[in-house]
Design a protein around this nucleic acid. Structure first.
Lengths: 132, 132
DNA sequence: CGGAATCCGAGTCGATACTG
DNA sequence: CAGTATCGACTCGGATTCCG
């Protein structure tokens, strides 16, 4: 079986559940998955397949794309380890680590105003008071 | 001529210059123009044509789209005034106003780390140390 | 395991032209 | 002035298949 090396805990498969598609909402970093990935890496390096777990429904292609972009922009580093079993890990750079600060601030604001955000959207969509 | 009512100063046409495409960089709110629009509205309501000035190169279509979305999501309100001359103004809602807080935090972080961001990107792109 | 290659639909963006 | 209509280009992201 695949043993998680050392003491780092595995990612919570539901860390981005329930409904909330992204803990960012109106904020976004890069593409759809980028911010989620950064948060997954905050406790240390993670393997490709490890990242797929909490990022429910992400395809390998999308995940690779996001990781490549994060790598290109200097927020993440990719490290390939050699051995009998293949092993690639992604980790935050200092820059990526620093990004977590304002990112958390944005997430906090979103959580604080979650109800207002939902209410405002529901008021904005329906058929009641519409411009023709 | 069109006189700016009361004492509010006009928008600086170059408020989003020079190079920087968006004062957000890795952060984004909504679509390409949304965050820029929010900042344009921070000193009070603005007219459609007023917004087009600092948002260099935005087409009426794109601007309308962004504004509609911001309106739908409850960050902006649209007000149409009647009179001999046509007049539509957009203003921040309390929710939109609150968004400026974390938004500014994100912008501040980006400014502080601007050089690192540029350097990291330049290091990520070129042909020197590439994976084949 | 960690991808790459390919296909495809949906959404965005700008340019252009036209309207009330 | 404040848009709408239409178009084409491009990007995003998912599904699927294949590979060392």
């Amino acid at each position: 079986m695949t043993k998680p090396q050392a003491g780092r805990t595995a990612l919570d498969p539901e860390m981005f559940d329930p409904v909330c598609p992204s803990p960012l909402v109106p904020f976004r970093v890069g593409d759809k998955w980028a911010a989620l990935i950064l948060r997954c890496l905050q406790d240390g390096p993670r393997r490709f397949s490890e990242l797929k777990v909490p990022l429910r429904g992400v395809t390998a292609k999308s995940l690779t794309q996001s990781l490549r972009r994060l790598e290109r922009d200097g927020f993440v580093v990719r490290e390939e380890y050699e051995g009998t079993e293949r092993r690639v890990e992604y980790a935050l750079t200092p820059l990526g680590l620093g990004l977590l600060g304002p990112l958390d601030a944005a997430c906090a604001w979103t959580r604080e105003h979650w109800d207002e955000l939902i209410d405002a959207q529901e008021a904005g969509l329906p058929g009641a008071t519409r411009r023709p």
